[in-house]
């Protein structure tokens, strides 16, 4: 729900301000790749209506966000290609593919794709964080969006602890990826919490 909320917040921000200054389209592209790799199972397995609906919403809303930022004026006119230039193709995609291949529990295409998607998701926030560090001053809605985008994985960790004790659920790759992902946010969260506490604008060091 937090993940969904972060997407809705971003959509709302783009529609309301008609600007995507401070938003990394490259992060959305990473997520689009994550979703396409992971949700291939839409074609051959059914878990629940909720699960299927969320997958479809995540994929379609993420592609819509990319479309808005890259191609749809007036939002696309505010997109700064030079600032949002983190080369995830080299730094994230390659390593995620290699890690996905060597750490997959089983060498099948869906399993390798799933594993690679977990590793890629764990670092997908990097383009966004690096963009914010260049700008330093973060708009309120952008701050909420990034905070919810980080918080959802933290709540997964709580759920994993519950599931481990309640059902003996084990998911080593998911857990490790989740810890890396949450760890990358800790720094941002700190500055976000401080700005909320003091009721000031979020300014990154």
């Amino acid at each position: 729900m937090l993940h969904l909320m972060s997407i809705l917040l971003l959509l709302w921000k783009l529609k309301k301000s008609k600007s995507c200054v401070g938003i990394s389209c490259r992060m959305q592209e990473c997520y689009a790749i994550v979703f396409c790799l992971r949700y291939l199972d839409l074609f051959y397995q059914f878990i629940s209506v909720y699960n299927t609906a969320m997958k479809v919403v995540f994929i379609s809303s993420t592609f819509y966000l990319i479309f808005l930022m890259r191609f749809q004026p007036p939002v696309s006119a505010t997109y700064d290609r030079t600032a949002d230039s983190f080369p995830y193709e080299q730094y994230l995609l390659g390593p995620a593919a290699v890690l996905g291949f060597i750490s997959a529990e089983e060498w099948s295409i869906p399993e390798i794709f799933w594993t690679a998607s977990i590793w890629l998701e764990s670092v997908s926030i990097l383009p966004q964080l690096i963009l914010l560090q260049q700008l330093r001053e973060v708009e309120n809605l952008t701050a909420e969006f990034v905070a919810t985008m980080g918080a959802y994985r933290f709540f997964y960790i709580l759920n994993w602890i519950y599931r481990y004790f309640a059902e003996g659920y084990v998911n080593w790759i998911g857990w490790l990826g989740g810890i890396v992902q949450t760890g990358l946010y800790v720094d941002f969260f700190y500055y976000y919490a401080m700005s909320k506490w003091y009721g000031q604008k979020l300014v990154l060091p």
């Binding site: 993940h3 992971r38 199972d41 397995q45 878990i47 699960n51 969320m54 997958k55 995540f58 529990e105 089983e106 099948s108 399993e111 799933w114 997964y156 998911n171 998911g174």
Partner: peptide, 10 residues
Amino acid sequence: DARLVGHDEL
């Protein structure tokens, strides 16, 4: 086999 059940998380 857990994989037969598939990944049930998003």
